[in-house]
Design a protein around this nucleic acid. Sequence first.
DNA 1: TATTGTTATACTCTATAACTATA
DNA 2: TATAGTTATAGAGTATAACAATA
Lengths: 160, 160
Amino acid sequence: MAKRATATAASARTETGDGTLRQFVGYNLKRAYMAILDDLHRVLGQHNLRLATFSALALVSDNPDIAQGELAQALSVERSSVVVIVDDLETRQLVTRNKVLGDRRAYALRVTLKGRQLLDRLQDEIAAHENRFFGQLSAAERATLVGLLNRVEGAAADAA
Amino acid sequence: MAKRATATAASARTETGDGTLRQFVGYNLKRAYMAILDDLHRVLGQHNLRLATFSALALVSDNPDIAQGELAQALSVERSSVVVIVDDLETRQLVTRNKVLGDRRAYALRVTLKGRQLLDRLQDEIAAHENRFFGQLSAAERATLVGLLNRVEGAAADAA
DNA sequence: TATTGTTATACTCTATAACTATA
DNA sequence: TATAGTTATAGAGTATAACAATA
């Protein structure tokens, strides 16, 4: 099928073909996701945050008094993994573990002022990050992209 | 900001809000990707293949006589990681390591007949997998999605 | 008995660094 | 000196399983 430059001394370097994989939407999806991930990690890394930790912070902010188990579900990780994440956020005083009236087993997580401020700054920085990669797309195109992605996600949720 | 059902005994379980994250295209991108990944892993797992191993097989098929270092680049992993992957493919007689005329350090990788046959079957199975998630999208919509994803990937390549 | 959070441990995947044999 | 592939090791991230406290 595919031709390939033989590895002679004077070979002009050919691009590696990936046509077989390109036929799959999922491959294109992964490539696009991976392509932006390094830069996102760099942005978060400047604040010593992992993606999961940032996501947890945002989720706690959106869901005051969320329990760790619920957070685990939202993050699609095990409860034991959430312990590590919340430990980190709590140590850095970005979220607090609060007593729940009526259930002394559970914690109600809340963002601190410091956490909110960090989140505000991060939202700006991530918006800038996104402009570097999605900036070429018009607002309408970005909306189309998100709409299609959400339909894919919805199809997965239906299947489950 | 966001309201949240208090954890009373009779609380109707509220969906966890993720509005802060949803504003980012990248989050929607990751969600869609993660949503299809479990099913893809299941399909590949039936053949005892990891995603990276399958991708390597497809890339070797598209690029006869590719070297391991080139494969590493195409897979975005280190050469040492490719050794493990190719070891697996070679042990299972799906690809062969062949001598390169003119450079006795390098290998030229080729898919075997067995590898090609497995790849053919996998392409069908993955196409079926994709229909489960992208089937709701029309062919035009799928093309639009891929086009937008590729522009994002291209923007990343330009930035690098 | 079931559930929440915790701990200790194991597993998967990948990177890093040092090595060999070639170039 | 540099490069292709290899090996051994370490690290990051997550899951699993057993546990204490509480429901």
